[in-house]
């Protein structure tokens, strides 16, 4: 699994960080998403899928 985030779209909701803290973080001020690892470990993949589904900005994509 390979993950991409679109920082332009991200509204800083932080849903992704709550669901998959090992994969996503947020910037200090604006809360824009920071991708910690673009190839998440198997145990984090379900979390990533859930984050894709709930991200209100449709800013997370699984690209491979």
């Amino acid at each position: 699994m390979k993950v991409e985030v679109d920082k332009e779209k991200c509204c800083g909701a932080g849903q992704c960080v709550m669901i998959a803290p090992d994969v996503f973080d947020q910037g200090d001020g604006d809360g824009v998403v920071i991708l910690l690892r673009d190839t998440p470990a198997p145990e984090h993949r379900d979390g990533v899928r859930e984050a894709v589904a709930v991200c209100p900005a449709a800013a997370i994509a699984i690209v491979g």
Partner: peptide
């Protein structure tokens, strides 16, 4: 406002 990380800690 401009404190996303601090904000999340209150959640």
């Amino acid at each position: 406002v401009r404190r996303a990380r601090a904000l999340r800690q209150w959640r």
